[in-house]
Design a protein around this nucleic acid. Structure first.
Length: 422
RNA sequence: GGAGGGGUCGCAUAGUCUGGUCGAGUGCGCGCGUCUCGAAAACGCGUAGGGGUUCUGCUCCUCGUGGGUUCAAAUCCCACCCCCUCCGCCA
């Protein structure tokens, strides 16, 4: 959520930013108008309340029964007016909130303007694409052939877009998770284990609701939600807290499964394990002072890249243009790994600076010093990395002519093997 | 799942029965000051967050959350959330 003061003081900044995203800037005028109406109603109702409070206090002191009664009668009329203005105020506020919640974050000034994802900018390529003297197979062939991936049983258990990993497949995924967690921990991220089921408020705080309601799993009986990413519980870790300056920055890393309905992506990426309703992810998350977030973003990007480099996987860094930027993000870099079998660049990480957007929603503040005013922190998140796609890249890029797969050196100890054979 | 107790200003507590002088007392902690060569102790002062405004003033909201009763709610009523104790069940 954006700061309402931004709409009041520099509406043109918001308008420009929305236009760069390809969004309709008309919301700005609606918000400004609602804000003015809100403040007018607020001033009125508060004046009435002040009167009531003072008079009620006075009535408490009155001994004379007749006078007391007449003054109580008089206050009934004031109450009726308070109720009327209050009802008006409540509806104005509800609408203002609803509008504000729908406004995406403002892109950072250096984000390239674009009309669609085709305008995203490839910043750099790292690593050479593997060369094969045979036709590399996609993981949906190779996986079942090696007994690593079992699509049929996954579907039988849970429906389409579910799969089972067997033996070395399951073990490879676990090795990757553990290695990533250990690597980030060594890099200064504090490891946390969070609930995978959260209250509705957490979804609002993280910006998942109301926008992405169609993509979330919800349990109606207990009114709780399955996390679509560790970003949700991590954002909420410090919700409604006022942090001390010396606590910042806070760096966290968490492993969680992620649950997504994928209604919006029906028919996309249906083959293989690129896009499932359930997948695993290791997530990096930072809370920083506002002025520190740009550097923190660069560092997080480097931390994500370091994993791909250590795995020996070729990848490219893509900067999202304004049109493709996520709802709460000011700037985002995607890491896309090359998958030789399916011949695609797969997004394994999306690394973003959310500015104060989530912090404002979740009430995450800090104070620079004793007595200083509270300020919202900046939050950053990035996958480090998404599992199924990393798994795909490892398998497809390291396959050999005889159908076996070499295990990257950094994983061999955890795998207890240097290759996978059927 | 059954029975009971409880959530108050950083922490610990008073206040709730008997609604008004309670946005809230006390202790601890913390900050500033006095004293001191310095420190401790002692003493004094201060110490929640958010909003509106005709703004160094006035004012509104928040005593778990949301409603209700009332001229007036920390205090009475309802719903929900959370914590604790005991019983049952269970990984």
């Amino acid at each position: 959520m954006l700061d309402i003061n931004l709409f009041r003081e520099s509406p043109e900044v918001v308008r420009d930013a929305l236009a760069r995203r390809g969004e309709d800037p008309a919301v700005v005028d609606a918000v400004v108008a609602l804000d003015e109406r809100r403040r007018a109603a607020l001033t009125e109702v508060e004046a009435l309340r002040a009167r009531r409070n003072a008079e009620s206090k006075a009535i408490g002191q009155v001994r004379d029964a007749v006078e007391r009664q007449s003054r109580i009668e008089a206050m009934r009329g004031v109450n009726a007016r308070i109720d009327a203005v209050d009802a008006d105020l409540a509806s104005i506020e509800a609408e203002l909130q609803a509008r504000l919640q729908q406004v995406p974050n403002l892109p950072r000034a250096d984000v390239p303007v674009g009309a669609s994802e085709h305008d995203n900018v490839v910043v750099r390529h790292v690593g050479d694409l593997p060369a094969f003297d045979f036709e590399p197979r996609p993981h949906w062939d190779l996986g079942p052939a090696l007994g690593l991936i079992d699509f049929d049983r996954g579907t039988r258990l849970s429906g389409s877009r579910f799969y089972v990993l067997h033996g070395p497949g399951a073990r490879l995924q676990r090795a990757l998770i553990q290695w990533m967690l250990d690597t980030h921990a060594a890099g200064g991220y504090a490891e946390v284990y969070t609930p995978f089921i959260v209250r509705e408020q957490c979804m609002w705080n993280a910006g998942q609701l109301p926008k992405f309601i169609d993509n979330l799993y919800h349990d109606a009986e207990d009114d709780v939600w399955l996390v679509p990413t560790a970003e949700v519980p991590l954002t909420n870790l410090h919700a409604d807290e006022i942090l001390a300056d010396d606590q910042l920055p806070l760096h966290y890393v968490a492993y969680t499964p992620c649950f997504r309905r994928e209604k919006m992506s029906a028919g996309r990426d249906v083959r293989g394990i690129k896009r499932g309703h359930q997948f695993d992810k290791v997530e990096m998350y930072k809370f920083t002072r506002p002025e520190d977030s740009p550097a923190a973003l660069d560092a997080m990007l480097a931390d994500g890249e370091a994993l791909l480099q250590a795995l020996g996987l070729p990848y490219r860094v893509v900067q999202l243009c304004t049109a493709d930027l996520g709802f709460g993000s000011t700037i985002t870099y995607d890491l896309e790994v090359w998958a030789a079998g399916c011949g695609e660049w797969l997004e394994v990480s999306s690394i973003s600076d959310f500015g104060s957007f989530q912090a404002r929603r979740a009430g995450i503040r800090f104070r620079r010093s004793r007595g200083a005013p509270t300020e919202f922190v900046h939050t950053l998140n990035g996958s480090g990395l998404g599992l199924p796609r990393t798994l795909i890249a490892v398998i497809e890029n390291n396959q050999r002519a005889d159908g076996t797969v070499a295990i990257p050196e950094v994983l061999q100890a955890r795998m207890g093997a240097s290759e996978i054979r059927g």
